[in-house]
Design a protein around this nucleic acid. Sequence first.
DNA 1: CTTTAGCACTCAAAGTTATTGACTGCTAAT
DNA 2: ATTAGCAGTCAATAACTTTGAGTGCTAAAG
Lengths: 337, 337
Amino acid sequence: MLDERKRKILKEIVDEYIETAEPVSSAIIVEKYENNISSATVRNDMAELEKEGYLEKTHTSSGRVPSAKGYRLYVDELLKYDNISLEEIRYIQEKLETKANGIEDLTKITTTTLSEITHYTTVSIGPKTAGQLIEEIKFVLLGSRMLMGIIMTDTGLVKETIIKFDEDITAEQVETLNYFFNNRLKGEPIEKIDTSLEEYIFRELKYSINIIRPIVAQMKKLIEEEEKIYLEGTNKALELPEFRSLDLVKNFVNLLDTKEVMLDILNTGFAEDIQIYIGDENDNEDLKDFSIVTFKHAVGDKDLGTIGIIGPKRMNYSKVISVMKYISKKLNDDFKE
Amino acid sequence: MLDERKRKILKEIVDEYIETAEPVSSAIIVEKYENNISSATVRNDMAELEKEGYLEKTHTSSGRVPSAKGYRLYVDELLKYDNISLEEIRYIQEKLETKANGIEDLTKITTTTLSEITHYTTVSIGPKTAGQLIEEIKFVLLGSRMLMGIIMTDTGLVKETIIKFDEDITAEQVETLNYFFNNRLKGEPIEKIDTSLEEYIFRELKYSINIIRPIVAQMKKLIEEEEKIYLEGTNKALELPEFRSLDLVKNFVNLLDTKEVMLDILNTGFAEDIQIYIGDENDNEDLKDFSIVTFKHAVGDKDLGTIGIIGPKRMNYSKVISVMKYISKKLNDDFKE
DNA sequence: CTTTAGCACTCAAAGTTATTGACTGCTAAT
DNA sequence: ATTAGCAGTCAATAACTTTGAGTGCTAAAG
C-alpha cells in the first residue's frame, strides 16, 4: 500500500515532529530531508498517508501530525534501536555496578539512571511477592517487646517488618519461632503465610495469642503490602512544550499522584519484553495524550520488578527503546551470574 | 495603632480572601460582615490598613488582598485555633491508632491523615539519626553470602540494611560480629559508626577485609542515607484556584520534585513548636507564593520526624494549625506511655 | 502515469480597539 | 467620625482585523 518513498516521508515527518513538537509542513520536509522532489509531491504523499490513517491535521490548513497508527508503524517498522552512545553505555554501567543492596534497591537505581539518560519521567514497582518461594525466615529480638521478621525468597528478595508486642518475648521463644516457621514454610510459596498459621502455631507451641497474632498479621501484611510506585523526574516532563496546556499538566500530575493507572500498566507487561503503549491504545482516557514504554525485569517466571518511562506521545522512541533494550539485557546478564 | 474595628475588618478581609481567592471589596465586607457601617467607612479603614502594610492592591481600582504582614498578624493575633470538629478528632484517632510499625511508619500514616483532613499537600521526613544512641546492633545471616544489619536506637528507631559479600560467612563469624559491635557501640551515639571501625575489627578479629569493609560501608551508608521526603496529595493542591497559572503549577511541582528546598524548611523548625512560613518570609524565591506550616515530632532533644503542609499563601490557617496542634499533642501524649 | 508550478482558499494566532463594570479615592454634607 | 455620591481607573472580555503559514487543486511538463 505504501511505497518506499511514502514510508520514508512518514518516518521523516515523525522524526521532525518528535524534534520540534510543531505540525510538519511539506516545505520543511523538502528543505530538510528531500531536496530532490517538490513540496507538491510531498503534499500528494501526505494526503495519501492521511487517507490511510497515519497522519492527522490539527485544522484544515495546518501541517501534519502523526496519528497513533502513524507512531505505531514508525515504532514497529521504521525505527532501528541502536540509538545509544558509548558514553551512555559507560554511564549506565557505572551506575548499575555500584553495589545495589537487594533487588528493590537495584530497581530504584535503574529507574533513576533511566530518567537521567532519557530526560523523561520514570516509574517502577518492585518485584511481586506472589509466586516466590520462601528460602528462609528469621525473627530477631529487638529489646524485649519487639521483633524484626525477615523473609528471604529464592530470587534473593528480602522483606522485613517490625513486630511489636504487649508482653515480653524471650530469646528461647524467638528461637522456637524461627525453627517452626522455617520447618513449615521453607521452600513453600510465600502465599502460604496466612491466618491458618495462627492455629498451627497455637496448637504446636501454645504461645499466648498476644504473641502469635501480631506476628502472623505483620508477616501477612508484608507480602500483601500495597505496591509502591517509585517515581523519578516528574519535573523533567514539565519542560516539554506539550505542557503549555494547564489541563495537560494537571492530568499528568494527577496520573502520577493517583498511582492506580500506572500500577495497572506496569502490571500488564510480559516478562523481558519491552511494551509500548501509544496514546489511547490503552483504553484509559487519562492516558490518551501520553505514551508509556515498560519492561519487566524477570528471571524465568520470577518477577523482579517493572520499570517504565512515561512521556508525551511525541516521545523520542528511538532513544528510549534503545536505552531500555540495553538496560534490560544488562540486568538479565548481570543477574545470571 | 489599629483600633478594634480595623483589626476586625482585617480579619474579615483575610477570611473572605481565604474563602474566595478574589480581592476583597469594601462592599462585600459591609454586605457579609458589617451591616451597620457604610462601605465608605470600610474604604477609609482599608486605606489605613494598606498604609500600615497589612493589605495590598493588585491594581489601582481593585479590591484588597492581604500582604505577608497581614497574614502574619492574622495568624499571630486574630485567629483562634480550635477549628477542629469532633468528627475530625475521631478520624485522626482512628487513623493514628492502627498499630504503626516503627516511627517512620507512624510519620507516614500521620502525613497521609493530615493531607486527608486538610486537603492540602503534606510532606514529611523521618527522624534524624544524628544524636540517637545505639541500643542494639544485630547481624543476621541470610543464606551464605548475605547479612542483614540492624541498628536499634534509644528512641525505638530501627534501621536495617542488606550487606552482600564475595565470600562465605559462617554463623560463628556473625555471632562474633554481633558481640564486638555491641560491645563497642552499645550506648554510643550512632555517629560512632565510621571507618575507624574497620581498623578496630581488623585488629581484633583478623577477618578478611572483604568481609569487614562491606559491613562498615553499608552501616555507614545507613546512617548517612540521604533523607527521603514522603509526599502526599500533590494533586489536591492543583485544584485550588491559584493554580490557574501554568508557571505556578510548574514551580510547585518542581519544588516538590527537587526536594532540597523542602528538606531545608523541614529541617529548620524547633522541637514541638508549630512553625509557620508565609510566602517570602523565608528568603527562598521559589517559595514566595506558598506558605508552609510544619511541626517537629520530638521527645526531649531526640528528633522523631517533621511533618509539614504546603499550600498557597491563602491557606486555611485556622483549620491547618488547629489540626496540627491536635495531632502534635496526640503524638506526644501517645509516645510518652 | 508521475511530478511540478502556481494560485486560490482556509484558519489559528496575534494584534487592535471598544465596551463593560467592579472597584477606589475624594469631596462635601451630616 | 461617618457617609452619600460621583469622577476616575483599569482588568477583563468581547468583537473585529490582519497576517502568514499551510493546504488542495488544476493544468502543464516530464
